[in-house]
């Protein structure tokens, strides 16, 4: 055993797919880090990740992998990578990434996703925002009109 340092953990997605990753990669998630500390067992750790599908998890792990070795890169290099990474995620994946980063406590990814969503919201009309994210308009027309007026006072 030469590579003693490389401790591995196994993550199980909600749809039952197993991902074997280095511990330091998995520990990008505070949720997993805490789980590992609590367990205190090193051998053959299996951690179920509920609510996160295999598709999402593989993308999440891609992020974790990069950031686990972030010290090897220049800062702007990792920024570039982040940008590219979040750019290529479509809206559904973005949504799942946000959810996964939240439940797995991966702060960097959460920030990144939030920033991306914010940039999508910026510059759009309320109706465009609804359409983009499939948000139901649960106001009555009168309420909407009232809020629109109130908004003009407060924000314009």
């Amino acid at each position: 055993m030469v590579g003693v340092k490389k401790k591995m953990v196994t993550l199980v997605s909600s749809d039952g797919v197993e991902f074997v990753v280095e511990k330091r990669v998995a520990e990008q998630s505070l949720f997993i880090k805490n789980a590992l500390n609590e367990g205190g067992v090193e051998e053959k750790v299996m951690i179920p990740i509920p609510k996160v599908t295999s598709d999402t998890l593989s993308s999440v792990l891609e992020y974790c992998e990069k950031h686990a070795s972030a010290t090897e890169f220049q800062e702007n290099e990792i920024e570039e990578w982040d940008k590219e990474y979040i750019e290529k995620a479509d809206l559904d994946l973005l949504y799942y990434l946000l959810q996964a980063s939240y439940s797995m406590s991966i702060m960097g990814l959460m920030e990144l996703g939030a920033k991306k969503v914010a940039s999508l919201i910026r510059g759009k009309s309320p109706q465009e925002i609804r359409e983009l994210f499939n948000i139901k308009n649960d106001f009555t027309p009168e309420q909407e009109e009232e809020i629109r007026r109130e908004m003009q006072w407060n924000y314009e």
Binding site: Y102, I121, M151
Partner: peptide, 28 residues
Amino acid sequence: RLPDSLLLLVFNKIGDVKALGRCCVVSR
């Protein structure tokens, strides 16, 4: 299904008062 705190994080990143105003109209 995103929790409120995550949504708040998103709104915090918007950083534009007008855009925030438009967000008010989107939904309850």
